[in-house]
Amino acid sequence: MVAFDWECSEFKLFSTTNLENNVNADKLFVSFLVEVEKQRKDITKTFTIQEIANIIPKGTAGINNYSTYGFSFMSMLSGQKNRDYFIFENKELRGEFTSICNNNVDRDNYYWKKHCLNERVRINPKYLKNI
């Protein structure tokens, strides 16, 4: 497996310098940014959660386990560990995801997929370079 490139120096539209964490959720976010730029999508547009899942499916960044991917994806969307990668149209959703991620007893790792695919988010501009 190729080592994950946190620097992403060849990409021009985003920056990874503001990332505080470097676990699976963060790898998914960086992979999302990489794919958005590679596919020449408008990095400032509003995405549905379904679109994001289509861009970074299970297997992205070496995350092949079904449960691990589901949790990592939801954690990427949450505010867990000071994450703020996305700005939500539904302002309450990040808190909802954070609460679910912090529940280690009976957490539904695929809550986002069952109930939130049409929710809309934008990439937090603090992760974008001046474009």
Rank of each mutant, 00 (worst) to 15 (best):
M1F: 10
V2I: 12
V2R: 12
A3E: 12
F4W: 10
F4P: 13
D5V: 04
E7C: 14
S9D: 11
E10A: 13
F11Y: 15
L13P: 01
F14E: 04
S15M: 02
N18D: 13
N18Q: 08
N18H: 11
N18G: 06
L19P: 04
L19V: 02
L19C: 05
N21G: 14
N21C: 13
N22Q: 14
V23M: 10
N24Y: 07
N24A: 15
A25W: 08
D26C: 07
K27G: 02
L28Y: 01
L28Q: 05
F29W: 05
S31N: 13
S31V: 07
F32A: 03
F32C: 04
L33R: 08
L33V: 13
V36N: 02
E37S: 09
K38F: 09
Q39D: 07
R40K: 08
R40M: 06
D42S: 08
T44Y: 15
T44S: 13
K45I: 08
K45C: 10
T46G: 06
T46C: 08
T46M: 06
F47H: 00
T48I: 10
T48A: 07
I49H: 00
I49V: 07
I49R: 00
Q50K: 14
Q50V: 10
A53H: 11
A53P: 05
N54G: 05
N54F: 12
N54C: 05
P57S: 05
K58V: 10
K58D: 06
G59F: 03
A61H: 02
A61N: 01
A61T: 04
G62E: 05
G62H: 05
G62S: 06
G62Y: 01
I63N: 03
I63M: 00
I63G: 01
N64L: 04
N65I: 03
S67A: 15
S67H: 15
S67C: 14
T68E: 12
T68M: 08
T68C: 12
T68P: 03
S72E: 03
S72K: 02
S72G: 06
F73G: 00
M74Q: 15
S75P: 03
S78A: 09
Q80N: 13
Q80L: 11
N82P: 00
N82C: 06
Y85D: 02
I87T: 12
I87W: 11
F88M: 01
N90S: 03
K91W: 00
K91D: 08
K91N: 04
L93M: 14
L93F: 04
R94H: 02
R94C: 06
E96L: 12
F97M: 09
F97E: 02
T98D: 09
T98W: 05
S99C: 03
I100K: 13
C101P: 03
C101G: 03
N103P: 09
N104L: 15
D106T: 04
R107H: 10
D108Y: 13
D108K: 14
Y111H: 15
K113M: 08
K113E: 09
K113A: 12
K114Y: 08
H115V: 07
H115C: 13
C116H: 11
C116D: 09
C116A: 10
R120Q: 06
R122C: 05
I123R: 07
K126Y: 03
Y127K: 12
Y127W: 09
Y127F: 14
Y127H: 11
L128C: 00
L128M: 03
L128P: 02
I131K: 07
